[in-house]
Design a protein around this nucleic acid. Structure first.
Lengths: 186, 186, 186, 186
DNA sequence: AATGAATGAGGATTCATTCAT
DNA sequence: AATGAATGAATCCTCATTCAT
C-alpha cells in the first residue's frame, strides 16, 4: 500500500489546465475519432478528474469546437508560412508538395483528424464555421501565387491527395505527390 | 379495447427484412452520421422491432459493414458503367465530369455518406477492406482509359473535388468541375 | 461467499414490473419527496436494475405523472365511494369528516403526497392535468349533496384542514375536524 | 485585450451582499421551486461569484432556511398589521377577506412560495420550525378577534382557499373569497 | 423464427462543497 | 475578506446486447 500522500493526486493548483484539456481532446480525437471522444476519455488522457471537464467547458461540443479550431489554426499556420516563404510560382508548387508529403509522415490517426473535422462539421454548425474559415484561409494562402480558380482547384487536389493516402494501404511517396501536383500545375 | 393481435403490427413472415434493414441503416447513416446510428434508430427507420436487429445481424458493426458495402457497390457500379461506355479518352474525361457533377446533385446527406465511410474505415478494419476494394475498383475503371499513374492521380482529384464541394457552402458548379478535370488531363 | 446462484439476482421474467415501479415511485415520493425521487431511488425501492427504469418509462417526468395519476385516482375513488354511500346531507357531512380524519391517520409522509403533487404541478404541465382532473372529480362528488358554491368552498376547507394537520406538530383530532366541518355547514 | 481588472466585475466591498443573496434565493425559489434552487442559480440571480455563496452561508440548507424565514416574516407582518387595524370582529373578517384576495393578486410564482415552504418543511426540521412559528403567529393574530377554536379553523380555511386558488386554473374572485369566509364566520 | 423485456456499462451534465490563492 | 478553480458523487438517459418466451 502506498502512503497517504500518494493515495490521491492532490493536484489543486493547475494553471493552464483548460489548455491542456484542449490538447488532450485533440489527442483523443486523433486516436479514437470524434465518435470515441468523450468527457471521460479526454479527462483520462489529461489525467484530470471528470468533473474538471464540465467546469472548463460547458459542453462536449464546446470542447470539440475549441480543439478543432486549434488544429485548423496550427495546420493553417504552417500552410501560410510555407507559402509565404515561396518567392515564385515554382517555389510555391514545391511548397505544396512538401506540405502534402510532410502531412503524410505523421501518424495515420493524425491524418484523419481533418477528415474527422469535416464529418463532424457536416452535422455541427459550430464546427462548420471552423472548416469554412480554414478553407478560406488555405485558399487565400494559395492565391498569393495562383489565380483564384487555380487556387481552388489546387486546394481540392491537395485534399484528395491527402485523403487518398490517408486511407490507402500504400500511401503515395513524396515523389508521387510531386508528380501529381506538378502535372496539374504544368 | 382491441385485442393484442391488433395492438402491434404482426409482420410475421417478412422475407427481405434483412435487406430492408440494410437500406434503413444507410438512410440513418446519411441522416445522423455513423455516430448517431444505433440499433434502435435503424429499427425505427425500418419500422421493425428492436429485437429484430440482433436477430438478423450479430453486431452493429456487421450492419455498418454491410451497409457501407452496399453503398460502395452502388457508387462503384455507376462509376464502372459510365466509364465503360466511353469510347475514348475524351469521352472518359467527360464521363468523370458527369460523375462528379451528378454526385453533387444528390442530397447533402448522401454526399457525406462516403466521407462517413472513410472516417469509420480509419478505425475499423472490416470497413477498411470495403474502402480498399472500392478504391481498387475505381482505379481499375479509370485504367481502362488512362495509364496507372494518371488513374491514381485522377482518382485523388475526384475525391478532392467531391469532398470540397460536399463540405463547402458554395459547391462547385458542373462547369467548374469540368474545368478542373480537363485542366488536369490536358 | 455465497454460491453462484445467489450472487446475482437472475430475475428475468417479471410481468407487472412496470406496475410495481409506479408503486415504488409513490413510496419514494412519500418518503423522500418529489425532489428526492430519482431513477436510482425508485429502482432501489423496487429492487430492479437502474436500466429498467428508462426501459419502462421514457423519462422521470413520465414516472411522476403516472405515479401521481394513480395516487389521485386512489384518493378520488375513496372520496367518491364514501360520498356516494351517504344518503343525505348530514351523512355526507359525516363522510367528509371521516375522510379527513382517516387521511390524517396515515404516515405524515403520505399526507404530504398531495401537497407534493400540487407543487410539482405548479411547474409541470403534465401534472397540472392530473391535479385539475382530481379537483374536478372531488368537486363533482361533493356536488351530489351540496350546491356548487358550497361544494367548492367545502373542498377548500377540506384542503386546508388536511394541510394544516399535515404540517402541524399537533394535528387536529377527529373531533376537531368534525367541529370545523359542521360549523361551516351549519 | 482588456486587462484582468476589466475582465470581471470587481465588486470588492459589498456590504449587504448576504442580504441580497437571501432575496435572490427567494426569487429563485419562486421561479424554479426549491428543487431548482442551487448555489449556482442564486449566485447568478444576484450577479455574484459562486464562491460567495459558501462564503456567506455554510450550506444551501442555511440559505433556504433564511430565505423562507424572511418570506414567512414578511407575510406574517402584513397579516399582523391588517388584523391589528381591525376594531371588531366584522372588520377582522373583512381584513381576512382582503388578505386572501390580495395574496391571490400577486404573481402565481409568489403564491407557490408558501406551498414550496410547506413541502420543504415536511422533510427539513429547520424549516419546520419556520412554519410552526409562522402558523403560531397567524393564529395569535386571529385570536385578537376570535376564540382559539375559531382562529384555528379559520386559519385552516384561509390556507385551503389560498392553496386552491393558487393551483386552480380558475382562482376564486374576491367576491367568492368573501362569501366563503363570511359563511364560515356567520 | 421472432421479439419484447431486461440489464449493466457508459454517456453528458449538474452540483454542493472544498480549497489555494 | 473574497473568489476562481477544482472535484467526486450523483443525476438522467442511451444503448448494445442477452435472453425467456
Amino acid at each position: 500500500m502506498s502512503g497517504p500522500a500518494a493515495r490521491r493526486r492532490a493536484r489543486r493548483h493547475d494553471p493552464g489546465r483548460r489548455d491542456r484539456l484542449i490538447d488532450a481532446a485533440l489527442a483523443v480525437i486523433a486516436e479514437r475519432g470524434v465518435a470515441g471522444t468523450t468527457h471521460r476519455e479526454i479527462a483520462r488522457a489529461a489525467d484530470v478528474p471528470l468533473g474538471s471537464m464540465t467546469y472548463h467547458f460547458s459542453s462536449l461540443e464546446e470542447v470539440l469546437a475549441e480543439a478543432f479550431t486549434r488544429h485548423a489554426d496550427a495546420v493553417a499556420r504552417v500552410f501560410d508560412e510555407r507559402l509565404s516563404t515561396a518567392r515564385d510560382r515554382d517555389e510555391a508548387a514545391e511548397a505544396v508538395v512538401t506540405l502534402v508529403s510532410d502531412s503524410l509522415l505523421g501518424s495515420p490517426a493524425d491524418l484523419v483528424l481533418s477528415v474527422e473535422l469535416y464529418v463532424a462539421a457536416a452535422r455541427n454548425p459550430a464546427l462548420r464555421a471552423v472548416t469554412q474559415a480554414w478553407m478560406a484561409r488555405s485558399r487565400r494562402a494559395l492565391e498569393r501565387h495562383f489565380d483564384p480558380t487555380t487556387a481552388r482547384e489546387l486546394d481540392a487536389l491537395i485534399e484528395g491527395l491527402v485523403l487518398h493516402s490517408a486511407l490507402s494501404t500504400d500511401p503515395m511517396t513524396p515523389e508521387q505527390i510531386r508528380h501529381a501536383v506538378l502535372r496539374y500545375l504544368r
